[in-house]
Amino acid sequence: MKTSDALLLLSAFTSAQWGLVTSRQAKGAGVDGVTLHRLEKAGHFDRVRHGVYAATIAVVTEARNEQAAWLMLNAAEPAWKRPLLEPAGGVISHGSAARLHGLGELVDDRVVLTTPRRRTSRDPNVRLMTAELLEDDVTTIDGLPVTTALRTILDLLDQRTDGSHIATIIQEAVEADLVRIDVLAERIGPYALRYGVRRPEDGGALLDHLLAEIGISAAHLARQPTPPRP
């Protein structure tokens, strides 16, 4: 196959998938592994992770690792054909979702995704969690499905993430108008005992307990002005 023909076939994917294409998508389009390897050697593509390639002319975003990991969950299916809640795929979640939302400073280079059924990954840099998400639990960031700020906070609480880290994420999420503090207080109650708050189901008490670790209160945070929408 001519290089120009192969590049044209692959551009149907890279133009709509953040500059990325999987080896299975390439094969389905008629570009075999030998040709893909030749394109890589010629400098047209870089291998991002096993089975995922990026066009060298594509803009590299901070979400590239998450994009590549998400594509590999259902490697043959084009991104534009996948529903928000994909039975064979997943959603960026937990610390990875917090990072994409620009919340907190959790230190973990692994990409975390939540899938509707139990799955495993051979990639040590990918962690798969299992949970049934609702549409209200998911948003999109540049076309990539990501758990909402609220769901992300709940997931991190469920993992017993350090209280001060969670408090910072909560503060930044409220200030960015990604979550309402009254809604948060209603939803986080089930995690109170995990953080030593001896008032089961009291989300308000847990919220005050967490925010106290960074020197603020829920009342103070609730008074912060909502930023103007762009």
Rank of each mutant, 00 (worst) to 15 (best):
R64H: 09
E66W: 11
E66T: 08
A69S: 15
W70S: 05
L73P: 11
N74Q: 07
A79S: 13
A79F: 09
W80D: 06
R82F: 03
R82W: 01
P87S: 05
A88Y: 03
G90N: 08
G90K: 02
I92E: 05
I92V: 15
H94Y: 13
S96Y: 06
A98D: 13
A98S: 08
H101S: 02
G102K: 06
G102E: 04
L103D: 05
G104E: 05
E105G: 15
L106W: 09
D109G: 14
D109E: 14
R110I: 01
V111Q: 03
V112L: 08
T115W: 02
R117D: 13
R118H: 15
R119V: 04
T120C: 10
R122E: 14
R122V: 10
D123T: 13
N125R: 15
N125E: 15
V126S: 07
V126N: 04
L128D: 03
M129A: 08
M129E: 14
E135W: 00
T139G: 05
T139H: 08
D142A: 12
G143Q: 07
G143A: 03
T147G: 15
A149Q: 02
R151L: 03
I153C: 07
D155R: 10
L156M: 04
Q159N: 08
R160W: 01
R160N: 14
G163T: 05
S164L: 12
H165K: 15
I166R: 00
A167V: 07
I169M: 03
I170A: 00
A173H: 06
V174N: 04
V174I: 13
A176H: 03
L178F: 00
L178S: 00
V179L: 00
A185D: 14
E186D: 14
E186P: 03
E186L: 11
R187I: 04
I188A: 07
G189A: 10
Y191R: 02
A192P: 06
R194S: 13
G196D: 07
R198A: 11
E201T: 13
D202H: 07
D202F: 08
G203L: 00
G204M: 03
A205G: 14
L206A: 10
L206Y: 00
